[in-house]
Nucleic acid binder design. Structure first.
Lengths: 209, 209
DNA sequence: GCCGCGATAGGGCGGAGGACCTATTGCGCT
DNA sequence: AGCGCAATAGGTCCTCCGCCCTATCGCGGC
């Protein structure tokens, strides 16, 4: 269901941080990370993600070096510190399907992951913007996509700890009956049975704050 | 309650990724981020975090430059790509309280944040390891710290979507009565009233999987 | 040896919550 | 004009949940 990705970067803070951030996006799942090119190769001998995210600058074996050895089995996106044309050219030559600066916003990275997962290429800097726009929205679950605005509001409140029918009704300025109706509709769409499961789903789908 | 921090780094992927990763630690709260030194200064004119995390290499105004202007109001930890003594020396001179490589593991970063929040200094590379060790454990809420092992197991199951008394009893191989007793104890300790709120707390406290 | 407490289990009681059904209003699309 | 649907609200029924109280067993500490 979700797009399964692997992240390779030698800086733990970026690697683990990005892993957590991407994992929290409903349609993206980080299944493993690697601290250098060799680790990445070892990893890919065992598992096959849908998309690989590689940093260029890494000890032992660089991202570009790793890609050359892989010959593009799973599509790869190269991320780098200083986005220069020379690096972009090298990445493309090594078989990368995408190229992004580490300064790119996370929604762009998510869109890029969806793009290459769908078989598109993001190498031409000019064309990239258009392609990304077509992959902006996260691919939510069937049920989650069917949620109405009011249902999302209610879920968001639930996920913030407002659990009783009375409190929910007060916060939304509607009757307790309507709260129960909305909840029943949510249970139906998400295929769950109670408020506790609704909280789990709300947080998994990123419906909170 | 939680340690309030601000992150300054020009690379969005590191900045936002790290923000999300740190925010998920129960006793750490990321209240804002900045993309360069100037933004950081603007931010600190408005808000006062407990700890600042700054990258050295940033456009417009470097991390070191920003620290010099701040004169160490909130304690700062400098993070950098290539951990060299020259940079460590400069960071110390600019008033930094800590110095870490971006390759440092996240638990070390969390421990470093707790250390400087507590008023300690992490500049001597040799002494750092000992100090970090003393700040390994996350500072949980009063109530959360009082949870017993079995109560955590139950919470963890709840947070994974097992919500009915019957299912919980089956998964833990205990009677439904005991499940209710454990739940009542959890409600008491966490000052909540039902399963939905328990799920919210479980996830906030990182008790899941 | 006993106290405290974690883990286990039972009973009763009242209310909240979930399932099922109907109904009205207003909006947008055809 | 008519359809579909989101948002609102009401009703009934019965289960399950939260609350209060009691009780046993075994372990570790004072």
């Amino acid at each position: 269901m979700a797009i399964r990705i692997v992240i390779a970067d030698d800086h733990t803070m970026l690697r683990e941080g990005l892993a957590q951030a991407l994992d929290s996006i409903p349609d993206i799942e980080v299944i493993a990370t690697a601290a250098d090119g060799r680790e990445l190769l070892t990893l890919l001998a065992e598992i096959t993600p849908d998309v690989i995210l590689v940093d260029i600058e890494m000890p032992r074996l660089s991202g570009i070096g790793a890609l050359r050895k892989l010959e593009g089995a799973p599509p790869a996106i190269v991320v780098t510190m200083h986005s220069e044309d020379e690096q972009r050219r090298k990445a493309a030559a090594a078989g990368a399907k995408g190229f992004l600066s580490k300064s790119a916003p996370l929604p762009d990275l998510a869109a890029a992951i969806r793009s290459v997962a769908a078989g598109e290429e993001l190498l031409d800097a000019a064309a990239t913007a258009d392609i990304l726009d077509r992959h902006r929205q996260p691919i939510l679950d069937e049920g989650a996509a069917a949620l109405t605005g009011r249902e999302r509001e209610l879920l968001s409140l639930l996920a913030s700890g407002v659990s009783s029918t009375e409190d929910l009704a007060d916060r939304l300025f509607i009757s307790q009956k309507t709260v129960k109706n909305h909840l029943a509709s949510i249970y139906d769409k998400l295929a769950i049975t109670d408020r506790a499961q609704a909280v789990v789903e709300a947080i998994r789908l990123g419906i909170h704050r």
